[in-house]
Design a protein around this nucleic acid. Structure first.
Lengths: 150, 150
DNA sequence: ATTTTTTTATTGTAAATGCAACTAAATCAA
DNA sequence: TTGATTTAGTTGCATTTACAATAAAAAAAT
């Protein structure tokens, strides 16, 4: 049975759930860790790109980012050459949370990959990257109102 | 880099997003397809097991299922031997939607697995099942308030 | 140079999500 | 058998999520 996508859904929900519970200690509310790690890893990224990167709705990202700013974890900086965009940059406090988030993530990865050989883990990653690449186009298109026909 | 879990997150969000948009035509609101397919495949399943199966919060499942009932897609049937549980069963209308949901899901699977050989697709499935199995325990434990330490 | 289209960001509104707290039935323990 | 614990389900409430609509800057087209 071709249950790959169901498995992916289950894994993703379970892990997101775990992370959200664990990060409540850091005063991060639902989903925020997702945005914060990416902003730390790519400071200066803009909202639109970030939403695209993690595959969430633009408006959802907008509000999550808004809240990160309100809570003093990131700032929105005006670009000197482009008045439209706002560059997202972590604050000191934001930067401090980064290693904590990564540690949790590494632990979850350890748990997830338990019993897999290095070759299997690598193979899994390669295959997942291809799958992700395969669906990106559809996500983009459907989000923009295009109809898939099947 | 051990980015397996990030890839899984991206894929899951993208596909869920696509499905939610596409199923609006069927008057299914966000997430409902998840529950309905499972109830069709395992009629008589109870709410608690369903939440466990798809890895969502019990209360979220409760409300989604409530809504499916309100909309006439499933019914909650009393069990003759156990007054506490309610068996979930699809209505005729619910059953009619099943093949439509599956068709969409098959299409997404086709897109997702494009370019993968049969062997690769099977290997991916095997690995994902192991990963899912690996994290299930943690999800359960964390949900019940247990602290992971890392 | 002006109009059109695309990109980026925001807000209103409606709905889903999920923690906390609660009830009641079932199971387990003494 | 009684009492404690676990299982199953529900509801209040605060928050997140996401579609629709809007605005404004930038880029592309004429």
């Amino acid at each position: 049975m071709r249950d790959q996508l169901r498995e992916i859904g289950m894994i993703a929900r379970a892990l997101d759930s775990i992370s959200n519970i664990e990060f409540k200690e850091l005063e991060l509310t639902k989903g925020q860790y997702l945005y914060l790690v990416r902003i730390c890893e790519e400071p200066g990224i803009i909202q639109e790109k970030l939403a695209e990167l993690i595959k969430v709705d633009r408006t959802t990202a907008a509000r999550a980012i808004q809240k990160l700013e309100t809570n003093g974890l990131i700032t929105k900086q005006d670009d000197p050459y482009n008045k439209k965009i706002k560059r997202l940059v972590p604050t000191e406090r934001g930067k401090e949370l980064y290693p904590v988030i990564i540690r949790e993530h590494e632990h979850s990865t350890d748990v997830a990959l338990t019993g897999l050989s290095d070759q299997e883990a690598e193979q899994l990653l390669r295959l997942l990257k291809r799958v992700r690449h395969n669906i990106e186009g559809d996500w983009d298109a459907v989000k923009k109102g295009k109809k898939r026909h099947y």
